[in-house]
Simulated scan of single mutants.
Amino acid sequence: MSTFTFRDAVASDAARCYQIESTAYEGDEAATLAKIQTRIAQYPQGFLILEDAGAIVGFINSGCAHDVVMSDEDFKELIGHSADALNVVIMSVVVDPAEQGKGYATLLMREFVSRMNALGKSSIHLMCKERHVPLYQRMGYQYVKPSPSDHGGMAWHEMVMTLEG
């Protein structure tokens, strides 16, 4: 039986999170170790870790913005981030490739949405590849538009979820 725990990230999680990120994402789309360290340091309450039996198996990280511009590459380094802003921007939803297919992404997203609601946030924005659009729609996200971002040389699609706030 799996023993799941959720928690905010701490500085010592950065190396494991980078390892997962760099094996789960293609090419240049993975965040660097420095970006992950910055995200943990600047907005730990938006960096949700999922552990199974004490081992990190996945995470979601984010920042908050008053005005969301999904194609803003600087925001990935939390330039323009404001913890009190009502709009959450997810930068990574990632599960260790060895642990995929077990429903961890859905567990992470449910917990993340719950936490953002508890913080009084009004919306959650994310970009995903076309193949993930139906998954996020099932989780309650609405399709917005194809993104002008070509992050990592990939085509992206913008999605948004309105929260209870």
Results as ranks from 00 to 15, higher is better:
residue 60 I to H: 06
residue 61 N to Q: 07
residue 78 L to R: 05
residue 64 C to W: 06
residue 66 H to A: 14
residue 78 L to N: 08
residue 74 D to C: 12
residue 93 V to Y: 01
residue 88 V to R: 04
residue 88 V to T: 14
residue 66 H to R: 13
residue 82 S to M: 09
residue 84 D to H: 06
residue 93 V to Q: 01
residue 88 V to F: 08
residue 63 G to M: 03
residue 80 G to W: 04
residue 67 D to K: 15
residue 92 S to K: 00
residue 67 D to F: 11
residue 77 E to G: 13
residue 70 M to V: 11
residue 91 M to V: 07
residue 94 V to L: 03
residue 87 N to I: 00
residue 64 C to T: 14
residue 61 N to P: 02
residue 91 M to D: 10
residue 82 S to F: 11
residue 60 I to Y: 04
residue 88 V to Y: 08
residue 66 H to C: 04
residue 74 D to E: 11
residue 64 C to L: 04
residue 66 H to V: 13
residue 68 V to R: 02
residue 63 G to C: 01
residue 62 S to G: 10
residue 64 C to A: 13
residue 95 V to F: 14
residue 67 D to S: 09
residue 65 A to D: 02
residue 86 L to Q: 10
residue 68 V to Y: 06
residue 68 V to K: 07
residue 70 M to G: 07
residue 63 G to W: 00
residue 79 I to P: 08
residue 89 V to M: 06
residue 71 S to E: 15
residue 63 G to A: 05
residue 70 M to F: 01
residue 71 S to W: 05
residue 78 L to Y: 07
residue 72 D to E: 11
residue 64 C to R: 13
residue 91 M to S: 06
residue 91 M to F: 15
residue 75 F to Y: 15
residue 95 V to R: 05
residue 86 L to W: 05
residue 74 D to H: 09
residue 63 G to H: 06
residue 85 A to S: 13
residue 89 V to P: 00
residue 72 D to N: 14
residue 91 M to L: 10
residue 89 V to K: 04
residue 64 C to P: 00
residue 62 S to D: 02
residue 67 D to G: 04
residue 71 S to I: 03
residue 75 F to Q: 06
residue 70 M to H: 04
residue 76 K to S: 13
residue 66 H to M: 08
residue 80 G to A: 07
residue 82 S to A: 13
residue 74 D to F: 12
residue 85 A to L: 10
residue 68 V to T: 04
residue 69 V to H: 15
residue 62 S to L: 02
residue 81 H to R: 03
residue 67 D to C: 04
residue 87 N to A: 08
residue 62 S to T: 09
residue 84 D to Q: 14
residue 84 D to S: 14
residue 75 F to K: 01
residue 86 L to Y: 03
residue 90 I to F: 01
residue 59 F to T: 05
residue 95 V to W: 13
residue 64 C to V: 07
residue 67 D to A: 11
residue 62 S to Q: 00
residue 75 F to S: 09
residue 91 M to H: 15
residue 91 M to R: 01
residue 74 D to T: 13
residue 65 A to Y: 00
residue 84 D to N: 10
residue 59 F to R: 02
residue 60 I to Q: 06
residue 72 D to T: 08
residue 66 H to S: 14
residue 85 A to H: 01
residue 96 D to C: 07
residue 64 C to K: 11
residue 72 D to F: 06
residue 89 V to S: 01
residue 73 E to M: 10
residue 77 E to Y: 13
residue 69 V to M: 10
residue 79 I to S: 13
residue 84 D to W: 00
residue 75 F to C: 05
residue 85 A to N: 04
residue 80 G to S: 07
residue 73 E to H: 14
residue 92 S to P: 05
residue 84 D to F: 00
residue 90 I to L: 03
residue 70 M to I: 13
residue 95 V to T: 10
residue 93 V to G: 02
residue 63 G to Y: 01
residue 85 A to Y: 07
residue 94 V to G: 02
residue 61 N to L: 12
residue 60 I to V: 15
residue 85 A to V: 12
residue 87 N to F: 00
